[in-house]
Write a protein that binds this DNA or RNA. Sequence first.
DNA 1: AGCCGCTGCTTGATTGGTCAAGCAAATACT
DNA 2: AGTATTTGCTTGACCAATCAAGCAGCGGCT
Lengths: 157, 157
Amino acid sequence: MPTPTAATPQPLNPDEESLVRALGQVMHVLPRAIDADMVGDRQLPLTEYTALMNLSETPGRRMRMNELAALCYLSLSGMTRTIIRLETQGLVRRERCEEDARGWNAVLTDAGFARLEESWPSHLAAVRRRFLQHFEGFDLAQLARAFQGAGTAETTD
Amino acid sequence: MPTPTAATPQPLNPDEESLVRALGQVMHVLPRAIDADMVGDRQLPLTEYTALMNLSETPGRRMRMNELAALCYLSLSGMTRTIIRLETQGLVRRERCEEDARGWNAVLTDAGFARLEESWPSHLAAVRRRFLQHFEGFDLAQLARAFQGAGTAETTD
DNA sequence: AGCCGCTGCTTGATTGGTCAAGCAAATACT
DNA sequence: AGTATTTGCTTGACCAATCAAGCAGCGGCT
């Protein structure tokens, strides 16, 4: 019996191999690097930046914890803690939700909006330098679709 | 004065915008998803798998902590703790380094090698399904080069 | 030979995330 | 109407990573 226990799957070819290795590196390095850039430059961690940014794009600059957590790819408890950090800095305020007294809205304060405006160039620069720059010859729209697929792949199966 | 404080950088065009959004998602989701797959399937977290894998590819299946940490994209202390976890499972053993009594070698045990052999199909499947699959039409070699660039970009600039 | 600074690794303290349990409000059921 | 279930969020316990401090062994310098 050549393959005794489990079905041996098709191994990676050399190009796949090096892509996967590079992916491993990027998954580890990129988020930390961009975060470190933001912290070094603007004292605003990537997670907090992302929360502020999502809030800023919403009518009334407010959002339910639920929805914000999903947009930030964070667990609900992770979101709670992020919002608490932002609240203590005065960048976000929490208001009880009118139509459901269990719910809360995170509301971007003026200070929060100002902080965001002051920080986005730093974020933009980090993303350009660490990522976009390296994909210059590529069809970005096509690439974006592939990434979306990779990010939203079914959880189990 | 139209732009009072800082120079306003070139904003992202729509394609860049959606690529960056997708990147944000992927950076968050992919490592956790692959790790969760491995844990669910084989009880072996991605970090530990990576350490075993790197050890297995080295002559004598042994490596200095230093070097292993670099290959795993982990801090030295993070590597120490990972190795301790692996050691308590009997998958790795530590030996003092012969030519430098300060140093340690992490050595893959037979049990560790077996564990790796049993786990790699799961890792492979996760990587295929969550990542490679979504880049089917692409020039993988070219993509790999771009990713390598993104992962190794100069730290400060 | 002996001290001094450097190196390799571990350990302690902290951080930022997760999951599970808790709690209060809303909703469904009879 | 009154209870049971579900929902929305927070809190507690935990975990894996980081940085900073500690420590032992090495190597250079005199």
